[in-house]
Design a protein around this nucleic acid. Structure first.
Lengths: 141, 141
DNA sequence: CCTACATGCTCTAGCGACTAGAGGATCAAG
DNA sequence: CTTGATCCTCTAGTCGCTAGAGCATGTAGG
C-alpha cells in the first residue's frame, strides 16, 4: 500500500533523533510500527505526522504527559473537543506565567549588565543584585 | 563570633529544601560549612546570602554551571567584571530567545483554543494545527 | 531523668526527557 | 565480496533535584 520508511529517514524528516523516536515508542507516545523481515522499524506517513506533532508540541513546551493526553483524545475524536480545550487553556496559563517570569528576569539581568558595565569598580554588583533585589519573584510559583 | 544556624533554619530562611542545600554543597556551589561536635552543618550569614543568590539565579533561569561561573568570579573580584558581563550578556540573549519562542507558542495555543472553542466540529483542529503550522519555529534553536 | 519527637546525618535510588555507547546484525554500493 | 552506513537491543549517563531508608543527635514535657 503506502510506502513505509526506516527510522533514519523519519529522523531526518522530522528532526527528531533516532534514539528519541525509539524513546517515544517506549513511553507510549508513538505506536510500535511494523517491522521488516529483519526486525527493523518501518514507519508510514501517519507515524511521521504524529512525530511532527510531538516535536512541535515539545518545542512549544508541552510536557510528554500533556502530549499523551492530547494524542489520546485526538485518537478518539468524540467527546474530545472540550477536554482538549481544557488542556490547551491550562497550558496557556502556564505559558503566560513563564513569559512573565522571563520578562522580569530580562530586566533584572539587563540591570546587572548596565550597572556592571562601567567596569571600574573593583566589586561587581551582580551578586548583590541577584542576592537582594530579586524578591519580586518570590511567590510567583 | 557571628551566629551560625543549622540547615533546617537556612532552608526556612532561603526557601531552599534541605536536600537541595546539601546537593548544592556536593556540586560545589556552596562551600562545606563548619560542623558542630555532632557533625551537623552550621551556616553563617554569608552562606545564607550565597544561597539566596543561588536561589534567585536558579529561579531566573540560570543553569547551575552559569551560577558556578558567576560565583567563582565574584569570589575573586579582580579581573572579574568584564567576565561577569560576558556571562550575563549571553544569558540575556538566551532569555530573549526564550521569550520569543514562548510568545510564538502563546499565539499558537491561543489560536488552538479559539478555533477549537466553537465545539461542534467532531474533529478538533488542535493536532492539525500543531502538526502542520508550527513551522515558524523550526530553526530557532 | 526519661521519653517523645523533631531534626540532623549518610547513602541509595528515582524522576523526566532524553543522550551516548557497547556489541552485534543487516543493508546498499562499489 | 568487502566496506561502511544504518539498524537492532541493552545499559548507563546527564541535569537538577527529590524521596526514602536507617541511624544518630537535639529539645521539650512530664
Amino acid at each position: 500500500m503506502s510506502r513505509t520508511v526506516p527510522i533514519g529517514t523519519v529522523s531526518r524528516e522530522t528532526g527528531i533523533k533516532v534514539p528519541t523516536i525509539r524513546y517515544y515508542e517506549e513511553v507510549g507516545l508513538l505506536p510500535s510500527p511494523v517491522r521488516t523481515d529483519s526486525n527493523r522499524r518501518s514507519y508510514d506517513a501517519a507515524a511521521v505526522q504524529r512525530l511532527r506533532f510531538i516535536r512541535h508540541a515539545r518545542e512549544l513546551g508541552f510536557e510528554v504527559e500533556a502530549i499523551r493526553q492530547l494524542l489520546t483524545l485526538s485518537d478518539q475524536p468524540d467527546r474530545s473537543c472540550a477536554e482538549v480545550d481544557v488542556i490547551a487553556r491550562s497550558h496557556l496559563a502556564e505559558i503566560d506565567e513563564k513569559i512573565a517570569r522571563l520578562t522580569a528576569l530580562r530586566s533584572e539581568v539587563q540591570r546587572m549588565v548596565d550597572e556592571g558595565a562601567h567596569g571600574r569598580v573593583a566589586e561587581c554588583r551582580v551578586i548583590e543584585v541577584l542576592g537582594d533585589h530579586a524578591t519580586c519573584l518570590h511567590e510567583t510559583h
